[in-house]
Design a protein around this nucleic acid. Structure first.
Lengths: 123, 123
DNA sequence: TTTTTTATTCTATATTTGTAGAATAACCTC
DNA sequence: GAGGTTATTCTACAAATATAGAATAAAAAA
């Protein structure tokens, strides 16, 4: 499942809200807001791709995701790791902690997560 | 700087090799190899975008990166973090360690990296 | 019930991307 | 130096993407 930029932006809103009508989407989109028809086109394409479904309510539809954010994102990350880090997650992780500006708190919470994971690996 | 898939693939080779002639690129590309003219087109586009430069040697050129892999990649990761994790690196990191299959060794090395970073943050 | 608002579909255009043939120019080899 | 080899430019075309107007249908408001 490959989504274009615009499609991704819409998906993000739909993932966040769980479900949304056209008007909700337009509301959530940042300025400068695109034309309604632009959004409609993207929704059509997302629907064609099988990324969203919808329930009809009179003249409009309530859209909802058919693919999980987690699934979609996981694929993207794995591609990145593969393409740029020779398939080595740790290489990537190291790069990541160095390049992003994580606060002490964030680093500590991450450390905890890793420790938990380690516990699971060494029972 | 936004690169298309094909452009990224070429950049990866150029980044790896540091510099490369057309024939090196063709050699490194996996089967099924694209036509020479296809590669030439991509090189032209990369050059137009300012991603690569070249030194002329007779009838051919030695291409080299003008943007660093690290810089380019850092931007990409930051976009991901922004778009999907509400700008929270730790949220992303947590997702990352859960979704990718890191070995015990990798987890430990990552833990060490984080501990080092923490040391720097709390002198 | 007439008017206004809103969502959808249909149509359309410009740009970007993947892909490569034809022509050309400059090397390399015999 | 004639002929093959290789890189570059020019041209081209199909698919994907960003963007939105016109027309239509249905709902909401007045």
């Amino acid at each position: 499942m490959n989504l274009s930029n615009g499609e991704e932006q819409l998906m993000n809103i739909i993932w966040e809200k769980g479900k949304a009508f056209m008007k909700d989407l337009l509301e959530s989109l940042p300025e400068p807001k695109p034309a309604v028809t632009t959004v409609a086109t993207l929704l059509k394409r997302l629907s064609d791709k099988g990324a969203i479904g919808y329930t009809v309510f009179g003249n409009s539809r309530e859209y909802y995701p058919l693919i999980q954010k987690k699934t979609y994102f996981s694929t993207k990350v794995n591609e990145l790791v593969k393409n740029f880090f020779n398939n080595s997650p740790s290489q990537f992780a190291s790069f990541f902690t160095q390049e992003t500006d994580m606060s002490q708190k964030e680093l500590e919470s991450l450390k905890k997560i890793i420790e938990d994971q380690l516990k699971n690996k060494t029972p």
